[in-house]
Every structure is written in structure tokens, then in C-alpha cells.
Amino acid sequence: MGEPVTREGAAGSRARLVRGPGLLLVWLYGVMSVGAVSRSAYQIATEYDRAPLAYTLSAVAAVVYAFITYTLVRGGETARRAALVCCAAELVGVLVVGTWTVIEPSAFPDATVWSAFGRGYLFIPVLLPVTGIVWLRRSRRS
């Protein structure tokens, strides 16, 4: 939040995505970004060899969360479309990784952010992209 003046000026000309329910969405994406980024950075830096696959997947999740947070804050039609694509990718990721961790737990000596559909995060990871897609689709009409 370092450049409030320029950002507000720029966002004024774009369709705002952070309003109403969008605020809650950007808050949850922000929290998941901070959580996933710090978690994967710490695990990759300190114990990467223990569960390389799990930590790499957590890092991928972190990048997706950070990007969606950025597009939501930025606003506008291009960002809305980009966020929509990322939410869809995120949903696929959660479902694939979630199913993978359930079917073949031996591949994951340690949990990822998306293990068991995000059970470690109150299932927010599987609920968030669905809510995001609904919100982003509705934002186009209004």
C-alpha cells in the first residue's frame, strides 16, 4: 500500500473488482498468498529434500494465489479475465492435487497447501476458486 495516490487514480478508470463481496474475496486470497508464499519459501529453504514434490506444489499454489490477489486489486476487464482463468486453473489444481494426495499419499511425505483439498486450511482452497469464479462472472454483468 505504498502508492495510494497513483494506484487509486489508475484504478478509477477500471472496473473495480474489490467492492462488496469482492473485498472478502481479496482478503481471503491475500491471506492464502501470505500463508502459501511464506510456508513454501521456508520449507524449500530449509527442508526441500524431505518432500520436493509437495513443497514445489505449494510454491505453485503460492504463485497462483499471489497473482489472483494482484489481478483482483488491479481491477479492469483484462485483469478480470486473467483472474477468471487463474481461478479455473486453481480449481483444477486443487482437485488434481487433492485427489492425488488421497489416492497416493506415499508420494507426499509432507503436506502441501492443497493436500486433501486444502483440509489443513479449513477447505478454503477448494471453496475459494468456486466463489471467485461466481464473483468474477457476476462482475462482468454489473
Partner: peptide, 12 residues
């Protein structure tokens, strides 16, 4: 966000 959604966000 001076609507109910501001309150929801603080609650979250």
C-alpha cells in the same frame, strides 16, 4: 468498504 461486506471481512 462502507457496507456489510466490510464487517464480513473484519469478521473473517
Amino acid at each position: 468498504e462502507r457496507t456489510r461486506w466490510g464487517s464480513v471481512t473484519v469478521s473473517a
